[in-house]
Structures are given as C-alpha cells and as structure tokens.
Amino acid sequence: MSHTAHIPSHRKPRRSASKMALRAGVTGGVLSTLAVAGASGAASAAEPVTQTIELPTLTTDLSTQVAQSADATQQAAADYQLQAERDEAFTKAADQAKKDQAEAEQKAAAKKKAAAAARAKAEREATEKAASRSTERTTLAAAAPAGSTETAAAPASGSVASVISFLKAQVGDAYVMGGTGPSSWDCSGLVQAAFKQAGVDLPRTSQAQSTAGTSVSLSSVQVGDILYWGGAGSAYHVGVYIGNGQYLDAANPSKGVVIQDLSGYPASGAVRVL
C-alpha cells in the first residue's frame, strides 16, 4: 500500500455501478448513433447507383439520335441520287439540243442551197423566155407589109404568139358589156381570155389590168403589151398592141372586136406581162 493511501483525499474513487451503467449506455448510444450514421452514409454512398435508372432514358435518346442520323444519311443519299439523275437528264437534254441544232442548221443550209439553185434556174429560164419573146416580137413586126393596116399572121407557137393568134381569131365578134366569149366580149374580158392562152391569169377589170404587169413607156411598147386608156389603176379601156402602131380591142357595140391604129386613138399607158 502507498504511504498516502490512508489519506482520503488521495485515494482513487471507485467507480460506482450506476456510473458504469451510465457510461455503458452512453457508449451504446454513441455506437448506435455511429451505426445509424454509418448506415445513413452507406445509403448516401449508394445513391449514385440509383441514378442508373436513368440509363434506359439515355439509351432511348441515343437510339433516337442514331435513327435520326440514319434517316438523314438515307435522305442525303436519296437527294444525291436525285441530283445525279437530274444532272444526267440535263446532260442528255443538252446533247439532244446540240444534235437538233446541228440537224436544223444542216436542213437550213440544204434549203438555202436548194433555194439558190431554184433562183438560178428561174433567172436562167426568165432570160431564155425574154430572149424568146424578143424574137417573137421582132418576127411579128417584120412580117407586116409597110403601111399595111393588117398584121401578118403570128407564129403558131410561143406565149406572145398564142395571145396574138387568139385575139386575131376574135376579130368581128360582137361587143357586149360584161362579155367573156366565146363570140361576144367587152374590152377586159377579151384581154383576159387572150392571155389565158399563154398561161397568164389576169384580173377581170380594165382598172386592175392596167397595173397587172410592169409599166412601160409608149415609146418602147412591144408586141403583146397591154395598152390602157385613163389612169393606171383607174383605166376605162384596154387593148393589146400587135405591132406597126396598131392594137386589137373590143372597142364598142358599134365596132365590136377590131384592129385599130394608135394614131387615131392614142393610149394613156402600157404594161408588160409577158
């Protein structure tokens, strides 16, 4: 024993049972509290695990995005194919247009060439025809005796000759206003019928016949030219020059179809249709 043990103030107090019980209770409470806290902490620590419930939602959104991306890719591919088809169609159309243009140009060139050939042929025929008419008129004029009031018979062939031959065959026929043959005539009806023998379709009236061909001066009038009295386009009478200063016409009811001298009844003008 310590030398101070007999001193009450220096003795270690004994722990009473109640205090020990109290301490045990406190300790148990603390442990319980810690256990509860630990459980609570464990529960808190487990909370992130409960967030995995949202994973299906995230997976659904991702699937939707993937599907949308696939749709967009498919649409882009379809658009690309459509554009490619349009480009191909445009290229074909452009090629066809070039081909059509080339064919059109070839046709136009061929048509132009044919027109030029036809024009050259027409000019050649017109030259030959003019030379033939000149020869016919010279023959008709030279065949008439000097100072004669009658013209010699015209050649049996040729456009001018056919006109003169027809006219002379009607000499002595009656004059009838509006007459067109075969045995009675007015002035324009006779002229129209005569030129029809040469394949020329003249208008019916003297007014229209006075402007039907090329105007010529009376000083250069030739056999077969149409003579008119009155103004061009308003003529009141027509006849045909047959050479040697003479013309043939359906004069009036008292004379009928006759051959007359221009000196006795000078014409106002002349036109040439042959």
Rank of each mutant, 00 (worst) to 15 (best):
T4R: 11
A5M: 12
R11Q: 14
P13Q: 14
R15C: 07
A24N: 08
G25M: 12
G29V: 15
V36G: 04
V36Y: 02
E47K: 13
E54R: 15
P56F: 09
T60G: 14
L62A: 15
S63K: 13
S63H: 10
T64C: 00
Q74N: 10
Q75V: 14
A76P: 04
Y80E: 10
D87T: 10
A89L: 11
F90I: 03
A93H: 15
A94Y: 05
K98V: 13
K98G: 07
D100Q: 15
E105I: 01
A108M: 07
A109E: 09
K113L: 10
A115D: 04
A115S: 12
A116K: 07
A117P: 03
A120S: 10
A126W: 12
K129G: 04
K129D: 10
S132Y: 14
R133A: 11
T135R: 15
R137W: 06
T138R: 10
T139C: 09
P145E: 06
G147M: 03
T149L: 06
T149C: 09
E150C: 14
A152Y: 15
A152T: 14
S159T: 12
V160S: 08
A161Y: 00
V163W: 06
L167R: 13
L167S: 09
T180G: 00
S183T: 14
V191S: 13
Q192E: 06
A194S: 15
A194G: 13
L202S: 02
P203H: 03
T211G: 01
A212E: 01
S215P: 09
L218P: 02
S219T: 10
S220H: 03
Q222P: 06
I226T: 00
L227T: 05
Y228A: 08
G230L: 00
H237F: 07
G239H: 01
G239W: 00
I242D: 01
G245W: 09
K255L: 10
V258H: 06
I259Q: 07
D261M: 03
P266W: 02
A267V: 04
S268L: 05
G269D: 07
R272G: 01
